[in-house]
């Protein structure tokens, strides 16, 4: 029972890290690319964008956060179900909407609020289920050793 609780807590922490890294990374990339202006599909335009992206601290920070997202996703999927992590990660859409309203002062449509509400209910429902329903690598190895 204690190990079940521990598993749930560490999964929740990693999913949260995953969502925060993805949302922050996207936000930083958006800010960084907006500073560069609209991409022009000419030799000079593409060259300007390339130089800007390679020298923008905002974009490098965004990439760092997205690497953090990938690392936390791989780590959590080493013990938790894919069908648990994938919908739980969608909570990022709700967080993005929250940031859009609070930080960017954007007006959010009713349709989007309904979407956020549905995602939140869905994430809560998935969160009630067991994070892991298959055997982990250690359990498989133990069983194989016991059968020898």
């Amino acid at each position: 029972m204690a190990s079940e609780k521990r598993l749930r807590i560490k999964t929740l922490i990693m999913v949260l890290a995953m969502v925060v890294c993805a949302v922050t990374g996207d936000l930083l990339l958006k800010r960084g690319m907006s500073e560069a202006g609209a991409v022009e599909f000419t030799g000079a335009g593409l060259g300007h964008t390339l130089v800007h992206t390679a020298t923008s601290g905002m974009i490098w920070l965004g990439i760092l956060f997205l690497l953090g997202f990938m690392a936390s996703q791989m780590t959590v999927m080493s013990w938790a179900d894919y069908s648990y992590v994938m919908p739980a990660g969608a909570f990022g859409y709700a967080l993005q909407t929250f940031f859009a309203v609070v930080v960017l002062h954007e007006v959010v449509s009713t349709k989007r609020w309904i979407g956020v509400f549905l995602i939140s209910i869905g994430v809560v429902l998935v969160g009630q289920t067991k994070p892991r329903t298959t055997e982990c690598a250690e359990q498989v190895a133990e069983k194989a050793a016991a059968s020898c």
């Binding site: 069908s83 919908p87 859409y93 449509s109 349709k111 609020w113 309904i114 979407g115 549905l118 995602i119």
Partner: peptide, 15 residues
């Protein structure tokens, strides 16, 4: 939960 998330993401993107 998965179906609600699916519908929710579709609505967020459409909104």
């Amino acid at each position: 939960g998965v179906l609600l998330v699916c519908a929710g993401v579709a609505l967020v993107a459409a909104g």
